[in-house]
Design a protein around this nucleic acid. Structure first.
Lengths: 122, 122
DNA sequence: CAGCATCCCAGACGATACTG
DNA sequence: CAGTATCGTCTGGGATGCTG
């Protein structure tokens, strides 16, 4: 981390997950089960087809997910995490914990919302 | 990670480091020593004052760095990592390793550059 | 079903000049 | 020394409609 010329792998990693819907998509895929395009699309009404497609393409190009086309009619396309993608999701955990710890000092309002969702689920 | 409504701490963390010069600045500060504004600015000629200032402000607002002004003439301002910032930098390591591992399949050219820099340093 | 094409806008980013 | 201010550009993302 000391030499800025050396942190391009880190930059690569951060850029690879810096898209508005990428963490969302990865969270959908993180159970390891392949998901169809429509399956991903229908989980959130704010997610447009254009954005879903572009985010999927970028994740694919960065080797995080893979796209499998089945030669059927009607067409079926499934997306799932690659090995790289799975390992990436593991690394998210300490990052999540960090956010949880330090968000309360900076974005207490959002954290409050989070707590409400958690309670409603329990 | 399973429920997308729950990953806002992760989104917070990723957004907090998603600025063009943020990882660069954090790498400068990651030795724990406070750095002056000019010290940060002079390490890279592509980094403009506007960008340096804006990135520093955002990092400060997210609680990752702190800004200390010394009441002197000429003015002196130092930046250093907060506790949150230090912990964040530790988490970068597995992310860096991930990038190093999987960049070679996606961006072999950039990885090649990295190797050249390393060899020149050794 | 799983997309692409087109148009549009806000905000990120850059270049240059000025200041307490 | 450590910043603002102003301008221009470019890209990420949204809205809408069309297609193999």
């Amino acid at each position: 981390m000391r030499d800025p010329r050396l942190h391009c792998p880190l930059t690569f990693a951060v850029k690879a997950i810096s898209g508005k819907w990428k963490l969302y998509i990865l969270s959908m895929l993180s159970d390891g089960q392949p998901k169809r395009y429509s399956e991903l699309r229908n989980t959130c009404e704010n997610l447009t087809e254009k954005m879903l497609t572009s985010q999927l393409r970028e994740l694919e190009q960065d080797g995080i997910i893979c796209r499998k086309v089945y030669p059927e009619v009607p067409p079926r396309v499934e997306y799932m995490l690659t090995e790289a993608g799975s390992k990436l999701c593991v690394i998210f955990e300490p990052l999540y914990e960090w956010g949880l710890e330090y968000m309360k000092e900076v974005k207490p309002d959002k954290l409050h919302l989070l707590e409400m969702v958690k309670q409603r689920m329990a």
